[in-house]
């Protein structure tokens, strides 16, 4: 298939940036979206031009590195996939495809389609953990039975890959879905109870500090999330945060 690509090019964080047009031909519908970009880059290199910089690594939808805003949607037109799992059969021959980076004040562009997501790192560091040291003397794993529905819920939340599609999609540039996933995972588990309140308070505080917006319950994040993280977790985060802020010791 033949396509017209409109790709965001930006030399570095301070550059203004803009869309460049590249025609591309002979793409297989079985190729992945990133393989299509590989072909484009090979072409650019052969023409003596600089290839398009984009983030990618595992190319099987789990590392959360790839991050493209395609035709106005995070990770493109398919549902429950990351950009690397998106296949060209989702596009029509002759189509014009717009490719942009995540757009958020808290995730500035580094180059072309690559953005800086270290704000997520700092949110995790503020409380996205259980304070247990490595030791060969923790209690036997089966000494702590956990009801299957609770364990399953925790797993659903823990599925988040930290790609940032929720932020890119949200009109408020909110990171609530990301934060909610982590806070919820631990809140369902007995191991997470000791630091439950402090975790919710600290992670939300850091989220605000990073400049992410607030949630206004649009639900676009849930739709675009490649892992289908449910909006329910945001409701849970709100309860966790409220409970932690108003409850006394």
């Amino acid at each position: 298939m033949n396509l017209t690509l409109k790709v965001w090019r930006q030399k570095n964080a301070n550059d203004k940036g803009g869309l460049e047009t590249y025609p591309i031909t002979g793409i297989s519908e079985h190729a992945s979206f990133l393989e299509m970009l590989d072909v484009l880059n090979e072409q650019l290199i052969n023409d003596g031009k600089e290839p398009v910089a984009f983030d990618h690594d595992c190319r099987e939808g789990i590392c959360g590195t790839c991050s493209l805003y395609i035709n106005g949607e995070a990770h493109g037109p398919d549902r429950k996939v990351t950009t690397c799992q998106l296949h060209m059969r989702m596009f029509k021959d002759g189509e014009t495809v717009y490719i942009e980076p995540w757009r958020s004040k808290s995730m500035p562009v580094i180059k072309d389609l690559i953005v800086d997501r270290t704000a997520f790192e700092r949110i995790q560091q503020a409380g996205g953990f259980i304070s247990v040291n490595t030791s060969g003397n923790t209690q036997d794993a089966n000494a702590l039975p956990i009801a299957k529905p609770m364990a399953d819920k925790a797993m659903d939340a823990a599925t988040c890959i930290g790609c940032g599609a929720c932020v890119a999609t949200c009109k408020n540039s909110s990171a609530m879905l990301f934060v909610a996933a982590k806070v919820s995972q631990y809140s369902y588990l007995p191991q997470g109870q000791v630091e439950r309140k402090q975790r919710a308070l600290n992670m939300v505080e850091q989220m605000d500090k990073e400049g992410f917006g607030n949630c206004t319950n649009t639900g676009a994040c849930e739709v675009e999330c490649p892992k289908g993280i449910s909006l329910e977790f945001i409701a849970r985060l709100n309860r966790e945060y409220l409970g932690a802020s108003v409850a006394s010791e």
Binding site: I130, V132, G136, A141, K148, M155, Q185, Q191
Partner: peptide, 25 residues
């Protein structure tokens, strides 16, 4: 020898391993 410790450690960290209905791993 240390394989069992790994599971204990990971559960303590909150790794959501699959469980049976009785709540055990």
């Amino acid at each position: 020898e240390v394989s069992g410790n790994i599971i204990d450690q990971c559960v303590a960290q909150g790794v959501p391993f699959a469980r049976e209905y009785g709540g055990l791993l």
